[in-house]
Simulated assay, not measured.
Amino acid sequence: MYDMLRPNQLEKKSDMEVLFFLLILAARIKGLQVEGPSSALVVQLGGAVVLPCSSQNPLPLEGLRVEWSSDSGSVVNVFQQNEIRPELQSPAFSGRANFFPDQISRGNFSIMLSNITREDAGVYRCQVYTDQDSSETTVEIKDVERLVVTGAHHAIITSVGEEVILNCSVDSHIPVHQLEEVTWTKHPDILVLLFQNNQTFLESSHKQYDGRVEFFTSEIPGGNFSLRLKDVRLEDKGEFICKVHAADLSAQTTVIIQQIGLSSLQKFILELCFISFALALGLGVPVFIFLQKEGTAE
Rank of each mutant, 00 (worst) to 15 (best):
D3A: 13
K13I: 13
K13T: 10
F20C: 15
F21M: 13
L23I: 14
A27H: 11
I29K: 10
K30F: 06
L32C: 06
Q33K: 15
E35T: 10
Q44S: 13
Q44H: 04
A48M: 07
A48N: 07
V50P: 01
L51H: 02
C53W: 01
S54N: 08
N57K: 15
P58N: 09
L61N: 01
E67Y: 03
S69H: 00
S72H: 05
Q80G: 00
Q81C: 00
N98P: 00
N98L: 06
D102E: 13
Q103T: 00
S105Y: 02
N108R: 06
S110K: 03
S114T: 12
E119I: 07
E119D: 14
A121S: 08
V123C: 00
Y124W: 03
R125Q: 09
D131Q: 10
Q132W: 10
S135F: 01
K142V: 07
R146A: 13
L147H: 01
V148T: 09
T150I: 11
G151H: 04
I157L: 13
I157C: 07
T158Y: 06
T158H: 03
S159H: 13
E163T: 15
N167G: 10
I174Y: 01
H177A: 06
E181R: 15
T183C: 04
W184K: 05
K186S: 08
P188N: 12
L191A: 03
F195W: 14
N197I: 02
N197H: 06
N197A: 11
T200Q: 11
T200D: 05
T200H: 09
H206T: 02
K207T: 12
Q208F: 09
V213K: 01
F216R: 11
S218Q: 12
S218E: 14
P221A: 07
G223V: 08
N224V: 06
R228P: 02
R228V: 11
D231R: 11
F240G: 05
D248L: 10
L249Q: 04
A251P: 01
Q252L: 07
T254W: 03
V255A: 07
I256V: 14
Q258A: 11
L262Y: 10
S263C: 06
Q266Y: 08
K267H: 13
L270K: 13
F274V: 07
S276C: 09
F277G: 06
F277P: 02
A278G: 14
A280P: 00
A280K: 11
G282A: 06
V287N: 03
V287M: 15
I289Y: 04
F290A: 15
L291H: 02
L291C: 07
K293C: 15
K293I: 14
